[in-house]
Design a protein around this nucleic acid. Structure first.
Length: 576
RNA sequence: GGUGGGGUAGCUCAGCUGGUUAGAGCGCAGGACUCAUAAUCCUGAGGUCGAGAGUUCAAGUCUCUCUCCCACUACCA
């Protein structure tokens, strides 16, 4: 049941945008599953590198910084620190949490652009863009508002009218104004930008996506093929902004006419996966090339990306265009896991309407394990998944407190009470032991395979079923009954029960690392006995040395009360 | 509008290339047990699988039409 060949695995999760701490939906759709997967693969003995970073460029960062009265770089420093802290609080086990504003990413981005241009995949073109005189900046479509030419709604956005839903061009808006300042002093100006000629790459992209039809989820391939079928359009990869990566010539000087322009955040963000890996290498002395350069060992690396469905097009088309178009031996993604959204009682998370929970608030309310378990057990894999306080309460109370927590408590405290906290010897194998052995022989390999195929809901359900089987075993073995007449037979039940506690802690590690640590600590399991190399199940059930001392951990999960739910619902606007 | 995903027990969801009485967890009802965080274990009730039509010996599963929800739609990221 242990793995046959250890592999080198690179894991990345979609980069969280720099503006503020992320909400539960962001967490559940990329960072958390990437973390759970990384932890599971490490336990299976693979050599895993999990890289993430903040995505720091773009208009929203500039505007938020201005509003906060900070320079953009100060703002990003503060927000990066806040996100790093939130990630740590959720026990996200990044090997490196970098920044897209790092020097390495800057250099790589410029190098990619130069290589792409040399290979004919970049072209400079002129386009029309709205300029706000009062704000002294060009406005992205979404930041221009005005009256909808279709339905006369007065605050339609330049890209789409919120009232009638029609797609718009900011040039069509009647009476346009800046969404930043409200100023009506806006004009259309010509501006030059670099375009990535994705259209020239569509053949190679289609071929590549086709090779992954079998192993990528439907959600992934269907989105990619849709864009390809519609015909890939060339995409502008620069913006009129101050904050970002400057566009340079091969000599390092600013490209002619590109003062005040920087690369578009979506061009440099995925490159930050590479940049952050270089930064990791710089810091740890690791070898970044074996993860990214196919001529330096990356062919033997498996690269797995995690993201929300909104990011799929960028990861299956745009970024691969950069990689392929560079004609350099960069590593392409092998496996891609995309998630739908976590919704808030079926609706959207909304900061302004106080609907939804952000990572820092969540940690104030409940331990990270609670969130990790609930979000993974209800991961939005097949479709959007609704978060409700009631479901959260049910997950925590039933799965964690009652099934797992109570199991650990009932058997360890009984052992302490009746067997001096020592793993007892003695007893005969009965039907109960044969039953649990059969259960685990079926379930453990299945659990591992769910992790390998990144089917998280199923992995969680299997984990829970294994925990529940422990309770069923105790009911069958009933050591408390045997104790009255046959202490040796009671010892069998207690011993197997204790070994189950250890096993449950071991399989819980990727999901609920804090509780797993408490369990394994109470059971005195040394670090080198916590990995996922199970051998045969009979041995697993008698792994603890007889005479080994254990203790009963304090209550692992306290229950969520009705009052808590009522309070949270009021505070966060659920159930409306 | 276009494209994609989804509509399966009260709730949240599984059901692969069509094949015996449609599954899980929660919730609910009854029973058992008493080591344990009134926990656990067993049993049970509960579904015209969004609607309609078609293909087939056989459809939740394939085809078509309709309907509702969600996302994306390329300068928000």
């Amino acid at each position: 049941m242990s793995i046959s060949t250890p592999e080198r695995i690179l894991v990345t999760s979609a980069l969280p945008y720099i503006n503020g701490v992320k909400h539960l939906g962001n967490l559940a759709g990329s960072m958390l599953p990437a973390d759970v997967y990384s932890r599971a693969m490490r336990l299976l003995g693979h050599d895993v590198l999990y890289i993430c970073a903040t995505d720091e460029h773009g208009t929203p960062a500039e505007l938020a910084a201005a509003e906060a009265g900070l320079s953009v770089s100060e703002y990003c420093d503060a927000m990066h620190a806040a996100q790093a802290e939130a990630g740590a609080a959720f026990k996200l086990s990044y090997d490196y949490f970098g920044r897209s504003s790092s020097e390495s990413t800057q250099k790589l981005t410029q190098d990619f652009a130069l290589a792409l241009e040399e290979n004919g995949f970049i072209e400079e073109r002129t386009s029309k863009q709205v300029y706000s005189v009062a704000d002294e900046r060009y406005l992205p479509d979404r930041y221009v508002e005005g009256t909808c030419p279709n339905c006369a709604f007065e605050s339609a956005r330049g890209d789409q009218c919120d009232s009638c839903g029609k797609l718009l061009d900011p040039i069509d808006l009647i009476d346009p104004y800046s969404a930043v300042s409200g100023s009506r002093d806006v004009e259309i100006r010509d501006t030059n930008h670099l375009y990535l000629k994705q259209s020239d790459m569509s053949g190679r992209l289609r071929e590549w996506v086709e090779t992954h039809r079998a192993d990528w989820p439907v959600l992934t391939t269907s989105i990619a093929m849709k864009w390809l079928d519609e015909g890939l359009r060339d995409r502008s990869i620069t913006r009129d902004l101050e904050w970002g990566i400057p566009v340079v010539n091969g000599d390092g000087n600013i490209r002619d006419g590109f003062d005040g322009k920087v690369f578009y955040v979506w061009f440099d963000a995925p490159i930050a996966y590479i940049g952050a890996t270089q930064d990791w290498a710089e810091k740890t002395g690791g070898d970044w090339e074996q993860f990214w350069r196919t001529d330096k060992g990356a062919d033997e690396t498996r690269y797995v990306q995690f993201m929300g469905k909104d990011n799929v097009a960028f990861h299956t088309l745009s970024f691969p265009t950069s990689i392929m178009g560079s004609e350099q031996p960069w590593k392409l993604v092998d496996e891609l896991k995309a998630f739908n959204w976590v919704t808030w009682y079926g609706g959207k998370f909304s900061t302004s309407q106080k609907r939804g929970v952000f990572m820092d608030q969540a940690i104030d309310i409940a331990p990270s394990d609670y969130w990790r378990w609930h979000l993974m057990a209800n991961a939005p894999e097949g479709s959007d998944a609704a978060f409700t306080w009631e479901e959260f309460q049910a997950s925590v109370n039933s799965d964690l407190a009652n099934v797992l927590g109570n199991f650990v408590n009932r058997i360890t405290s009984y052992c302490v009470k009746k067997f001096d906290g020592v793993v007892p010897a003695g007893g005969e194998v009965t039907d109960a032991e044969r039953w649990i052995e059969t259960e685990l022989t079926e379930r453990l390999p299945r659990l591992i395979s769910y992790y390998e195929t990144r089917e998280f809901r199923k992995a969680m359900a299997e984990t829970r079923a294994i925990w529940a089987a422990g309770n069923e075993y105790l009911t069958q073995a009933a050591p408390w009954t045997h104790y009255k007449t046959d202490v040796d037979q009671a010892a069998m039940g207690v011993r197997v029960g204790l070994n189950l506690v250890a096993l449950f802690g071991i399989i819980a590690q990727p999901i609920i690392p804090d509780a797993a640590e408490k369990i394994l600590g109470a059971m005195n399991i040394p670090m080198d006995r916590r990995s996922w190399s199970f051998g045969n199940v009979a041995d697993v059930l008698d792994a603890l040395p007889h005479g080994h001392s254990v203790s009963a951990p304090p209550v692992l999960f306290s229950k969520i009360e009705e009052d808590d739910v009522a309070t949270w619902r009021e505070r966060f606007g659920g159930g409306a």
